[in-house]
Amino acid sequence: MALNQTLSVQRLDDPAPDSPIIEISHLQKVFAQRKKAPLEAVTDFSLDVRRGEVLGLIGPSGCGKTTILRMVAGLDSPSSGSIVVDGKEVTGPGPERAMVFQDFALLPWQSALENVVFGMAATKLSREERVARARAELARVGLSGFEDHLPKALSGGMKQRVGLARALAVNPTVLLLDEPFGALDAQTKTLLQDDMSATLQEEGCTTLLVTHDMSEAVYLCDRIVVLTNRPARISQAFSIDIPRPRGERFRSTPEFTELVDQVWQELKAHVTLSNSQAVVEG
């Protein structure tokens, strides 16, 4: 059956064939809580991401997947374990990693152009070069003519395009996407996923996508890692051996539906568990 070739369940200790660009080993994150037992968000999480790979982290909400992404970004530091990106241990944010935020994180008082320029703060480019590159990136995400608009004058989808332009403008080795379409309506989301798929192909940058949307993960990723309920561990990893970009028609193929179902079957147990836990805790 064709499906078995496209969807292969990996052994977790399987070494990645190419040289990994992100090496996460035995990552653990414990949050101290006032007057409460410490909260273990991530436990013994190890993962290698190949150069150019689009890897999806999917898990029940609140499972700790965003915490993992934040640690790769250098916004949170691991309690133990290590993250190595491009041969260097992560100790804080760095210019080789750029992030796209769920709530866009645009400066409301700055134009679309200036928001993209702000992202290049750590680069050595001159002001003119920054502006030129920001214009080019905005054009690429389809926002020519909106350079001078304030975020409040842009739709949600347009705001996230600015967020993507800002991240791409720094030519990152690793692109970190934190539920980038989570705040958008279904139609906008579909359009942006198509664009994102094309952009990721063009850029070829290694991408870590945190999402709770199974079809989004199947549509965009080379590999999907399903996480357990908190503390996050790897439950299962799926390889999707279909060349990218997959094109919007991919969504209406039986293959796609089957893949989404496979991921859901794996995820379901953890989501159910997480909900019953929430009831007990709440």
């Binding site: 934040r70 970004a73 250098g74 916004l75 804080g92 944010p93 760095g94 210019p95 990693r97 750029a98 992030m99 935020f101 709530d103 994180a105 400066l107 702000f118 992202g119 290049m120 703060a121 750590a122 800002r166 720094v170």
Partner: peptide, 11 residues
Amino acid sequence: GLHDMSATFGA
């Protein structure tokens, strides 16, 4: 989010 954004882009 704006603090995080400023930090990731190295402001």
